[in-house]
């Protein structure tokens, strides 16, 4: 770990301004991912801005009938919130499928969105990784890639985004609210928050330098049957091989988003139009441009089968 300076932010705007005004600064909230990465010198911030003291730990109802989740709401609290459990069941279920109780107690809403990949080559600084060291190559391609992306990947990177929460939020059309260093705010649909790796897998979101997530807004409840199914070798405390977030309406329409298959939560709205034609049609659209390795080819049939199971259960 490199030495770093540290400050406690006094307001979101001040935090954003400080981050933009200090070279190589990072925000720290729960720290469950960042601190590990700093110990391995995968992340080497010169300055940490602790945002834990900001009053961003509330869940409030919005004028539109939705919920605004403060960036610092802990995963445990979010999963347990009565309104979330009642109206956004997919989110509560996804949160509880993630990590462990201890980690969920620390992990924050914004931090969860911004956690980095769990690709083992990203974590070993002796090996090539374009995400860790741009231009060094991708050791996962041609290497151990059982966990890796089957769609939306590139020649530079086949890493996945590890979050469960984000997959559910993608299905819920969540909107990310931020404050920028100049004090201005903006709203980013979650579909646009995460980038595909392309030629620059080190750039993972559309957030600008210093831009701070302050909240995640959920639109008013959409009802339906909500499910989150996480498939993994180990029954708990493991990242998804494939996960499916689904919201199915009585009329058979619905939304599906997948985790464990791409560099971001994977949802294609056009695929959902195929729901009445059956799972195969949906999967064909979701994975039209899929490209798998020998190790992870199983994810394509697994995703389709998991999707089928979730939809079948949602309809019964």
């Amino acid at each position: 770990m490199r030495s770093f300076s540290y400050e406690r932010a006094t307001s979101p705007g001040a935090a954003a301004a400080a981050a933009a005004g200090t070279a190589n600064a990072k925000f720290i909230a729960g720290g469950t991912n960042l601190l590990d990465l700093m110990k391995l010198e995968i992340e080497t911030p010169a300055h940490l801005i602790d945002v834990n003291g900001l009053a961003l730990d509330r869940i409030e109802e919005t004028a539109e009938g939705g919920l605004r989740i403060g960036a610092l709401v802990r995963n445990t609290d979010l999963a347990a919130d009565a309104r979330v459990r009642r109206d956004y069941g997919v989110l509560s279920r996804a949160l509880l499928a993630g990590a462990s109780g201890q980690l969920r107690n620390k992990a924050t809403t914004a931090g969860n969105l911004l956690q980095r990949t769990r690709c083992p080559y990203f974590y070993d600084t002796n090996l090539p990784c374009n995400k860790r060291k741009p231009g060094s190559g991708c050791a996962a391609i041609g290497g151990f890639s059982r966990q890796h992306a089957v769609v939306g990947a590139s020649e530079a990177c086949i890493a996945t985004h590890p979050s469960d929460m984000a997959v559910a939020m993608r299905a819920l059309d969540a909107v990310i609210e931020t404050v920028r260093p100049d004090g201005g705010t903006r709203s980013i649909p979650i579909a646009d928050l995460h980038r595909l790796p392309g030629d620059n897998p080190e750039i993972e979101t559309v957030l600008q330098p210093g831009e701070l997530i302050t909240a995640v807004a959920l639109p008013k409840p959409v009802g339906g049957t909500q499910a989150y199914r996480k498939v993994r070798d180990r029954a708990s405390y493991a990242f998804a091989l494939v996960s499916v977030a689904a919201i199915v309406q009585p009329d058979g329409t619905g939304r599906v988003a997948l985790g464990g298959v791409a560099h971001k939560p994977w949802r294609i709205e056009a695929a959902e139009a195929e729901l009445p034609r059956g799972v195969k049609a949906v999967a064909a659209r979701l994975f039209a441009d899929a490209k798998s390795t020998r190790d992870n080819a199983y994810k394509l049939p697994l995703a389709e089968r998991t999707l089928a199971a979730v939809l079948r259960e949602a309809r019964t």
Partner: peptide, 28 residues
């Protein structure tokens, strides 16, 4: 689940932490 995966190009066990090398948890 237990499997030290060999990267035959670089000559190492790739999954060299407890996130990558899974052992049973209580739920198993």
């Amino acid at each position: 689940m237990e499997d030290l995966v060999v990267d035959k190009r670089h000559g190492l066990f790739v999954n060299h932490d407890l996130a990558g090398y899974e052992v049973p948890v209580h739920a198993d």
